[in-house]
Every structure is written in structure tokens, then in C-alpha cells.
Nucleic acid binder design. Structure first.
Length: 484
RNA sequence: GGCGCCGUGGCCAAGUGGUAAGGCAGAGGACUGCAAAUCCUCGAUCCCCGGUUCGAAUCCGGGCGGCGCCUCCA
């Protein structure tokens, strides 16, 4: 099945054809690291990861780069307030974000370039734009992009800036540009910039790069002149990505991006958790509160990336249960009694059908909810078959089911993350098994109140017992249930 | 004001012309010492009104309601 993607540039679904067959160059707009990333940011990062995983799953040789913006107004202000340089200030946030990304099963990008490490490249890019007449210098040593020099300006966001803004006065605005619609490539230094170590020498004067410039420079340096896919949040369409196009295409004369993908923002379903209300919910907060990372990942994947996602406690609970259902099924198949002489049960065939549906959904503009539907339909069918067959199937069928589940999880990463967060060390394992032994004794002597007490004791630690004719098995159901 | 999006069972959420995937929650049943897990059964006039069509949640028009972007927020 051929992948089709919704390209923001054309506002339509297009078959994915990378510039070079079998290879995919992807650049994702990462966070500004002046604070902890919140769940909304991570909706994007998890989606980026999905793109990354999907392309690798389909066999592409993927070059995946996500930037970390470590210089901008907020960063400088915050660093100065704490008496730090921007790198001292931002680095802990960069580390935190990468750790949280690990916790959520986000595959590492090939590179995480910091803007401040690419100032030379950015200066070179500005020089090219000046040479080509796309940019101009102002008296204070700033450089602006001249929008009128790039007739296609507005093609991504479909804005007609002529009418919208022309009448406005060139304001008292910070750097004195010719036209309000122009955007900064280079901002002349201010005292606080120097204080924070955010000032670099350039041919036209000391200053710091404009926001948009870094992405053009870093994607050019790390991926190439033409990106196959550029990812970002919906808010970045304008002006950020519009400006990137102007800069990059203005400088190289080549198409900047073949497919633009934008992730819709999430909406907080219950509490007012949005950052703008000063009530940030960071991933760090959630993990510290005991939210299961696999549940979080599931919820962030539960809506199509171009739809608004309702994020909230209730959804997280539901996601946790859904993930557990998946784990239980996988474990059940792993423990199934394989019997070479057993008749074909049909579970292998159902797995095959599910994989096909899954692939079809993902190929259709990365429809993860559709893919999850295929997966969970199969879980139901599979459980039904195993019930009817008494958990006895031919080995090749059991293997095939596990292969299919594993294959889907290469894209979804749910079992993978659940595995990370549910590990139990050997000592605890022994303790659990001892307790189960005690409980077995109690049950044999019909001392059910004692047996139930032991079961409750384990449950408080997230260990759930399941009795069956073959004995008692236990499982770790992840982090503690949510409070409040 | 400009551009754009959305409104599917209690909640979340696929489906964009052929008569409604999936998850969570809920009810009943099977299994269990009781549970847990699992299975079976049950639940949707797809916001409203018109229109196009043999046929619409899906296309068109109107209405009501919610939301995003319009210079540094993923």
C-alpha cells in the first residue's frame, strides 16, 4: 500500500514520493527549550515519532532531525533573570525533554541541533539572501527579509498579506524594518543579549539570529536543500514555516519541502491545563504523578494528527486500560499451549487480516486511530478463538500472531513503552512469588480471607493476580492509578 | 474583519456516496471460592432544516453551536 499524506502546501492528499527512492529526509520543528515541554508539545513529538517509525517500518532509509531552539526572547529574558548564559539556562531543559521523550518511547532523532551551534551557517545563509537581493540591512545592524522579493510568499498559509497589512504603519517596532510584513533574519544586539551570551559577530554587526532562520539553516545543513517531509505544529504554518520557505527557496532556488505535515493542537478536556493560563501540565508532572507512560503515549496517539485531541484524566485512565488489554493478549499468546497436532484455529489468518487493515489505515495519511481499531478488533477475535480452543493452537499460528503484534508495535510503540515501565527486579519478583505461594497454601486450606488479604497487598503495589486452572499468574499493571 | 477547521452512542474516536470500526464506562449472562482476565448479549433517528441522488454521517445551500491561526505558541 502506497503512503498518502495530506500536504499543507496543496491542502490535499498526495502519494508520498521522496526525492530519492527509498530514502526520506525529515525535519521536525522541535521545542523552544526555555521551560519544560508540556503535553501539547509532546503530542507533536509523539506524532513526529510515529512518522519516524512508520517510514522505518516501511523500509525507508530515514534521516530524521529535530531542532532544539535555544535562543529567543523568552529564553534570553529567563536566562538574564537567573544570571545565566542561555546555554547554562537551556541545557537542563534539553536534557529533561530528551529523557521524557525516552520515557514515552520516542525514537532518538539522528540529530538534535541547537540553534546556537549553527550561527555560522545562519550568517552564511543571510549573506546569500543579501547577495540575491532578498534581504536588506537596517541602520542598527539588523537584517530583514524583503517579502516583496519573493512573489510566492504566502503560498503555504494562503495569506494575502497585501490587503491585510499594507496599510499599517511601520511601527516603533523594535528594529525599524521597511515594511511590517518583513521579518527579521538578524537582530542587532541589545544589552540583555550580551548579558546572556546571545550575541554573535556578523559582517553587518553583532546580533542574534531571527527565529525562522535557524530552521532553514539547520535543515539545510543536516538534511539537505530539499526536505522530503517537514513536520510541525499547526500554529507554525504562519509565520514560521512561511518564512522558512521564503528564506530557503530564496537562497537555494530549489523547492524547500516536498510534504508539509502539521499536527493539530490538543485541547484540555477537563482542568484548565493550558500553558496560556499559567497552569502548565508538563510531561514531567504527569510522570511524577504516576501516569503510565504507555497510557500517555496511547492517548496522544488516539486521535488522528489532523484532528483536535481531547486530553484529560478520564482519557488517560481509558488509555491505560486499553494498553493493558493489549498487553494481556500478547502475554496470553506467549503463554499459549502450542500443539503441532492441533487443528488450524484461524487466529493466524485473523492476525494477517488485521495487519492488512492496519497497514491500510496507516498508509492513509497515518490514520493511527484506524490502525488501533484494526489491532483491537483482532484482540477481541483472538481472545474469542483462544477461549474456544482452550488456548491450544499450532505453534506456527502462535508465532505468526506474535510477529504481527510485534510488527504493529514497531509503529505504535505501546508494548515497547509498557515493557519499559513495568519491569520488576529479581528481588521483587521473588517476593511476589513467595507471597503467591503463601496465598496458594491459604487457598488450599480454604482460608479465603487470608488469601484475599495477600491479593490486596499485592494489588496495592500494582501487582494483579489471575487464578486459573493452571495456577496463579501475576502481572504488573503499570504505575499507580491516578489520583484526583 | 481575513483564512481555515470541527459538531458521530455517557466519554474518547475512526469512517467522506451504499446503509455506522475500535477503546473506556454501563447493563445482563458464562467462567471463578470471591475476584481478575476472557467470552457472549444489549445500546447511535451520525447538531438542525432544505436540496442533489436509486441511495448521504458522507456531496451542495442555509441555520445553530464549538474551535484554530492572523509575527516568535507544538
Amino acid at each position: 500500500m502506497r503512503l498518502r499524506l495530506f500536504n499543507t502546501l496543496t491542502r490535499s492528499l498526495e502519494p508520498f514520493e521522496p526525492l530519492e527512492h527509498g530514502r526520506a529526509g525529515v525535519y521536525a520543528c522541535g521545542p523552544t527549550i526555555y521551560d519544560h515541554a508540556h503535553v501539547g508539545n509532546f503530542r507533536s513529538f509523539v506524532f513526529y515519532d510515529l512518522v519516524h517509525r512508520y517510514l522505518e517500518w516501511k523500509g525507508y532509509d530515514v534521516r530524521f532531525v529535530m531542532n532544539l531552539t535555544d535562543v529567543d526572547d523568552k529564553t534570553i529574558r529567563a536566562a538574564v533573570a537567573e544570571g545565566k548564559t542561555i546555554s547554562e539556562y537551556t541545557e537542563p531543559f534539553a536534557q529533561a525533554i530528551l529523557e521524557e521523550a525516552d520515557a514515552l518511547g520516542i525514537r532518538r532523532a539522528d540529530r538534535y541541533p541547537r540553534a546556537t551551534a549553527y550561527v555560522d551557517e545562519m550568517i552564511a545563509l543571510v549573506e546569500r539572501l543579501l547577495e540575491k537581493g532578498h534581504a536588506y540591512r537596517t541602520d542598527d545592524g539588523s537584517v530583514f527579509f524583503d517579502i516583496t522579493s519573493f512573489p510566492e510568499y504566502g503560498k503555504l498559509s494562503r495569506k494575502n498579506l497585501d490587503e491585510a497589512r499594507r496599510g499599517e504603519r511601520v511601527s516603533e517596532d523594535e528594529y525599524g524594518k521597511d515594511d511590517v510584513r518583513d521579518f527579521a533574519l538578524w537582530k542587532a544586539s541589545k544589552p540583555e543579549d550580551r548579558e546572556a551570551g546571545a550575541a554573535w559577530p556578523a559582517p553587518w554587526g553583532e546580533g542574534r539570529p531571527g527565529w525562522h532562520l535557524e530552521c532553514s539553516a539547520m535543515s539545510l545543513a543536516e538534511v539537505g536543500e530539499t526536505l522530503d517531509i517537514h513536520l510541525g505544529g499547526e500554529d507554525l504554518v504562519f509565520p514560521h514555516h512561511e518564512d522558512e520557505i521564503a528564506q530557503s527557496e530564496g537562497a537555494t532556488g530549489k523547492p524547500f519541502v516536498r510534504y508539509w505535515l502539521h499536527v493539530r493542537h490538543l485541547r484540555f478536556a477537563d482542568e484548565k491545563m493550558s500553558k496560556s493560563r499559567g497552569n502548565t501540565v508538563t510531561v514531567q508532572d504527569l510522570l511524577e504523578q504516576g501516569v503510565d507512560p504507555a497510557a500517555l503515549r496511547h492517548q496522544l496517539l488516539s486521535a488522528h494528527y489532523r484532528s483536535e485531541l481531547a486530553f484529560g484524566r478520564e482519557g488517560l485512565e481509558g488509555s491505560g486500560r486499553a494498553v493493558q488489554r493489549l498487553i494481556d493478549f500478547r502475554d496470553r499468546v506467549e503463554e499459549v499451549h502450542t500443539d503441532p497436532s492441533a487443528a488450524i484455529s484461524g487466529i493466524g489468518g485473523k492476525a494477517e487480516e488485521a495487519l492488512e487493515r492496519f497497514e491500510g489505515a496507516l498508509a492513509d495519511d497515518l490514520n493511527v486511530p484506524g490502525g488501533l481499531g484494526a489491532l483491537f478488533s483482532f484482540v477481541s477475535e483472538g481472545n474469542g478463538i483462544l477461549d474456544r480452543k482452550g488456548d491450544r493452537v499450532p505453534p506456527e499460528e502462535a508465532e505468526r500472531v506474535l510477529e504481527v503484534l510485534g510488527s504493529m508495535d514497531e509503529v505504535l510503540g505501546l508494548l515497547e513503552v509498557a515493557g519499559q515501565s513495568r519491569t520488576v527486579d529479581a528481588e521483587t519478583r521473588h517476593w511476589i512469588e513467595d507471597r503467591i505461594g503463601e496465598r496458594e497454601e491459604a487457598r488450599r486450606s480454604k482460608d479465603f480471607s487470608r488469601a484475599d488479604a495477600i491479593r490486596d497487598e499485592l494489588a496495592e503495589r500494582g501487582i494483579v493476580l489471575e487464578d486459573s486452572s493452571r495456577g496463579t499468574r501475576w502481572k504488573h499493571v503499570g504505575t499507580r492509578p491516578l489520583v484526583g
